[in-house]
């Protein structure tokens, strides 16, 4: 961590640069989503746009963590706690993997696996 006055002074320039970088990538995120000539993949939103958008977000988040949150020079304990949090978050997201095996069925009973089947959408009961 920046301890001495000189180091802090030097770090300030870095913070400014990272801030501008974050602004720039925010503009990039919006541009690839809204400007047609920058729309990768098919027309409109699709997987490619999701991958690009989330990759930029992940990169931006890394910048914030590494520079602003000083993860570039931290003690081992912080990394341990931080990785623990990330692992837990991924575990939460991975829970969706089990969703397919969930015995609770909803929607159309004719759907192949009990879940929503785009070929046979569930009917919404309207009285």
């Amino acid at each position: 961590m920046a301890g001495s006055i000189e180091e802090v002074q030097k770090a300030k320039r870095l913070y400014m640069f990272i801030g501008l970088l974050l602004f720039f990538f925010t503009v990039v995120t919006v541009a690839v989503a809204t400007v047609e000539s920058l729309d990768f993949g098919g027309h409109g939103f699709d997987k490619v746009d999701a991958i690009i958008g989330l990759s930029i977000a992940a990169f931006k988040a890394s910048l914030v963590m590494i520079i602003f949150m000083h993860l570039n020079h931290e003690r081992p304990l912080v990394y341990f706690v931080y990785i623990l949090g990330i692992v837990m978050a991924f575990f939460c997201i991975a829970l969706i993997g089990w969703a397919k095996d969930d015995p609770i069925r909803y929607g159309n009973p004719n759907a192949s696996d009990g879940f929503y089947n785009p070929d046979k959408p569930a009917t919404r009961s309207v009285h």
Binding site: V81, Y82, C92
Partner: peptide, 27 residues
């Protein structure tokens, strides 16, 4: 604070997971 933030990462991770689930299985 880092212990707290780790728990927050998990909390929002769970919510993003919820988002993903709702979106993937939306009828």
């Amino acid at each position: 604070i880092w212990l707290f933030l780790a728990s927050e990462v998990t909390l929002f991770g769970g919510l993003f997971s919820g988002y993903l689930f709702l979106r993937l299985y939306a009828d």
